[in-house]
Amino acid sequence: MALIGIDGAGKSTQARWLADWLDATGTPARYHRNAAGRVFFSRLAQRLGRRDAEDLLGVRLFLLVETLIRGFVIARALTLSRLTGTVAVMDRYTYCQYTSITVRGGTPRPARLLFRLLPQPDLVFYLAVPPLVAQARVEARGKDHEELDYLTASDRAYRALPEAGRFTVVDAGVDPSAVQASLRAALRPDPLPGTVSPRPARSTSHLLPIG
Rank of each mutant, 00 (worst) to 15 (best):
Gln46Lys: 13
Leu113Tyr: 10
Ala19Gln: 04
Arg50Trp: 09
Val103Asn: 04
Leu207Ala: 13
His32Thr: 06
Arg92Ile: 02
Ser154Cys: 14
Thr79Asn: 10
Leu114Cys: 02
Asp52His: 14
Met1Asp: 01
Arg188Ile: 15
Lys11Gln: 00
Arg137Met: 00
Ala77Val: 05
Leu83Ile: 09
Leu56Ile: 04
Leu123Asn: 06
Val73Ser: 10
Ala29Phe: 03
Gly5Gln: 02
Leu80Thr: 11
Thr13Tyr: 03
Val196Ala: 12
Ser42Gln: 09
Gln46Ser: 11
Glu146Leu: 11
Val129Ala: 01
Ser81Asn: 08
Thr79Arg: 14
Ala181Thr: 02
Arg50Phe: 12
Val103Ile: 12
Arg188Leu: 13
Val196Thr: 15
Ala160Leu: 11
Val196Gly: 02
Asn34Ser: 04
Ala185Arg: 15
Pro121Asn: 04
Leu132Arg: 13
Arg70His: 15
Pro108Arg: 01
Ala77Lys: 00
Ala35Arg: 14
Pro189Met: 15
Asp91Ala: 07
His32Trp: 11
Phe167Met: 15
His145Tyr: 15
Lys11Phe: 00
Ser182Glu: 07
Leu18Gln: 10
Tyr93Trp: 04
Tyr150Pro: 07
Ser12Gln: 06
Thr86Ile: 06
Leu148Thr: 07
Asp55Lys: 13
Ala15Asp: 04
Ala53Asp: 13
Gly211Thr: 14
Arg199Val: 12
Thr195Pro: 06
Ile210Trp: 15
Glu66Ala: 14
Thr152Met: 05
Val174Cys: 03
Arg92Ala: 04
Thr25Lys: 00
Thr25Ile: 07
Leu78Trp: 10
Ala201Ser: 14
Leu56Cys: 08
Leu151Glu: 01
Ala178Lys: 08
Pro189Glu: 13
Gln180His: 14
Gln97Gly: 09
Phe41Ala: 08
Arg116Gly: 12
Leu56Gln: 06
Arg60Ile: 03
His32Met: 09
Leu192Gly: 05
Ile101Gly: 04
Ala15Met: 04
Asp20Arg: 10
Thr168Cys: 10
Leu117Gln: 12
Thr204Phe: 09
Ala45Gly: 10
Thr102Glu: 08
Tyr158Ala: 04
Val179Cys: 01
Arg82Leu: 13
Ala201Tyr: 12
Ala181Met: 03
Ala140Ser: 11
Ala172Asn: 00
Val129Cys: 05
Asp55Arg: 11
Val89Met: 03
Gln180Phe: 14
